[in-house]
């Protein structure tokens, strides 16, 4: 059985909060472990996700490598003559970055498991105004559409006989102008059409809305939510007593 959207929303909020608040590698590892657990609970296929996000993942790794090479401090691990290459602080920084991004990615993956109006229903049950809930759901729903459209535009520009790889950096930037302008304008056109379509179908014609599926929290949802909340509370208190919680 699938988790209720509300439980998933809670997991997302807690995971991102912990990822942002945790400061050292040890704590982040615990949070990352919890994130993997949450991912398994939400039935995320890790292999598919890695495939889908492979460009993003390689970017994260690239940043981590740059960070570990440029941040200096702590023990010197690798050096050539007097030039420090790798220091313990650099590695720590990079690790923190990778772990934090992985947790945030996991939260994003959990968010993307929502189907159709699930998240809207969940947000509504949490007493968010319908218009707001609907807007956020639409935004999520259109992300892949824009991604596909952008990919198609890159192909279409290649079909103009332009070999993107062979261009100089400056012309490349100009080219991105040609890609982004119509994408933004197209998005605006699309949103106007969507608004018209909504009005044509009587959006907000009645004050009270009924729902096709009434959401109900199962015992499993309660267990997940309570465990997640207790875990977060214990974690934050422990960090606070160790003086690791810097914001407070």
């Amino acid at each position: 059985m699938k988790l209720d959207p509300r439980s998933r929303l809670l997991l997302i909020v807690l995971l991102t909060t912990l990822a942002v608040l945790s400061e050292d590698v040890g704590n982040l590892m615990i949070v990352a472990g919890a994130a993997i657990g949450a991912g398994i609970l939400c039935r995320i296929s890790f292999l598919d996700a890695a495939k889908r996000l492979k460009h993003f993942l390689s970017l994260i790794l690239f940043i981590a490598v740059v960070q570990s090479l440029t941040v200096k401090g702590g023990d010197i691990l690798v050096h050539i003559g007097k030039v420090q290459l790798l220091t313990s602080r650099g590695i720590g920084f990079a690790l923190e970055f990778v772990l934090r991004m992985s947790v945030i990615l996991m939260a994003g993956l959990i968010a993307s498991t929502a189907e159709g109006s699930e998240m809207t229903d969940g947000l509504l049950k949490l007493r968010m105004p319908y218009e707001l809930a609907f807007m956020s759901a639409i935004a999520l729903r259109y992300l892949p559409v824009f991604r596909d459209e952008f990919a198609n535009r890159i192909k279409a520009i290649a079909l103009r006989g332009i070999d993107i790889k062979k261009l100089s950096l400056w012309t490349k930037l100009k080219l991105y102008g040609y890609l982004i302008t119509p994408a933004i304008l197209g998005a605006m056109q699309k949103s106007e059409e969507l608004a018209r379509a909504l009005n044509a179908r009587g959006f907000r014609a009645f004050k009270k809305r009924t729902m096709l599926r009434e959401l109900k929290l199962s015992y499993k949802d309660w267990i997940v939510m309570i465990t997640a909340l207790v875990f977060t509370a214990v974690f934050l208190i422990r960090m606070y007593t160790c003086g690791a919680l810097l914001v407070l």
Partner: peptide
């Protein structure tokens, strides 16, 4: 042949 190279000789109207 890349799409760009092909498109220089074949025009494709979407």
């Amino acid at each position: 042949m890349s799409p760009g190279a092909r498109a220089n000789r074949i025009g494709y109207l979407f």
